[in-house]
Amino acid sequence: MTTPDRSFRGATAVVGAANTAFHKRGTATSSSLQLTLRAILDAAADAGLDAHDIDGFVSYANDDNEGLAVGAALGVKEVRWSSMVWGGGGGGVAAAVNAAAAAVVAGQAETVCVYRGISEADAGRQSYSKGHIGPLYGAHGVFAPAQICALRTQRMIEVDGVPREALGALVAAAYHHAQNNPEAVAYGKPLDPEVYDDARIISEPLRLYDCSRENDAAGAVIVTSAARARGLRQEPAYVLSGVQGSSSSWTESVENESPYSSAGFHPALVARLWEGAGIKPGEVDVTQVYENFSGPAVASLIDVGLVPPGAEAGRVMRFENLIAPDGGLPLNTAGGNIAEGFVHGFGLIVEAVRQIRGTSPNPVPGAAVSLLLGGPMAPLVSATVFGAGSTL
């Protein structure tokens, strides 16, 4: 094996991060563009930057607002980079950060904003999934992401032997963390275990609380060079490694995949993630995992080596082990898509950065390595490892 190129590692950092308020879907009085602009202005202020100096834009999940239009609305001096990550909903959440970092490393831009905004009034519902649920599914009555993920989750439980309780532990941890996050939609609404167990089935084995929320909101983070980041307002969250990819079988034959219960993080992609970051899975301090549904999130954790496969997953996926500050695998520490709010996982980026800064509503003491996982059981998956200055 050749020695990995380390030029990407620590060359860039997130210096500004912001979410707007999470509104119940369809209730925001602002358009998706207006929400996006507010998030970008807040992220720039967070970094201590003039928003007019942003010269690159990246989004994902078929965002309706092109980078050129966002730049024009902000009145930036020049747009040097504008790109969209293909691949469905949350699969591009980490890939968008990686694309911004790559643009900066390559010298194509200096200050790149990653953003995502949704307002049902003008963006509609599930625009991101158009083209990903094709005739193969429709002919058999499968029309929703929950159904596809439920099929794979059921296999993970029945054939792989992952305990059903692992899903419940992940959901319980998300709701627990949300109780310390006043910005979370589930703040002040703790989830009783009996309520979780008795909730209606959406698509077996997924029940109501296994499913992510949908919200009108927006988020933004700003990526720049490491050298510049060190002179700005916030502690930088350095990008140590970033990967994205898909197995070759994501086509009309997708339901014949041999690693059927995998989240899609195939071994070669996972190897690149850890090699690029220069760390092992056990060195991760805190994780933000995209949970469109609880089952795929558990599969992601297994794929990347944070949780053992099969029945042994239950040994790690326990509520006490998943919560900050003392759990061995603290995850979704602001509430995640399930309990904080859902803008195709953008809040997970913001929380991954907050953990490095120590400003999370549920901080993990001394967190120096923060992992972001995006898009399980989607056409594209992606991951980013953030690190504190001490990791460089």
Rank of each mutant, 00 (worst) to 15 (best):
L372N: 02
R200A: 12
Q147G: 09
V97S: 00
R318N: 06
A69Q: 13
S82E: 04
K24L: 14
G347K: 04
F143N: 15
G16M: 06
A352H: 04
G219I: 09
F265K: 07
E66H: 13
P163H: 06
H177P: 00
P236H: 10
C211H: 09
V142K: 01
L269C: 05
R357A: 03
A39P: 03
P193L: 12
M377L: 09
A368H: 08
A95W: 07
G335D: 06
G107S: 00
I133M: 03
S212C: 15
I302V: 12
C211S: 14
S7T: 02
L348P: 01
T2F: 13
E235N: 10
S203V: 07
A169V: 10
V112I: 01
R318K: 10
Q288F: 08
I54G: 00
G295A: 13
E194A: 15
P379N: 11
D53L: 08
L322Y: 10
A227E: 12
S129E: 11
P135Y: 12
I133A: 03
G305K: 06
V76C: 11
I349L: 15
K130R: 14
P376A: 04
T3Q: 13
T153L: 12
A324C: 05
P193F: 15
L167Y: 07
S127D: 15
A277H: 07
D210R: 07
V307F: 07
A237M: 05
S30C: 12
F319D: 02
I201F: 14
A43Y: 08
A227M: 03
T333L: 14
L331C: 09
I133F: 06
V142T: 02
H176P: 00
Q126E: 12
E340F: 03
R25V: 02
A352M: 02
N181G: 05
N180S: 04
A43H: 09
V353M: 06
G282H: 09
A334I: 03
V254R: 14
A174L: 13
G141L: 08
V289K: 01
Q355M: 06
I148D: 08
A186W: 11
G91N: 01
L373C: 01
A268D: 13
V369S: 07
S247T: 12
T224G: 03
Q355P: 03
G168S: 05
V254H: 10
A13C: 03
V369I: 12
G231W: 10
L208W: 14
P182V: 14
L167C: 07
Q108A: 06
T391E: 15
Q126G: 11
S248H: 11
G335E: 11
G314K: 05
H177N: 09
H52D: 01
F265Y: 15
E110A: 01
A123P: 03
N292F: 14
A44Q: 13
P135F: 14
D216C: 11
I222K: 04
V243R: 04
G56T: 03
L35P: 00
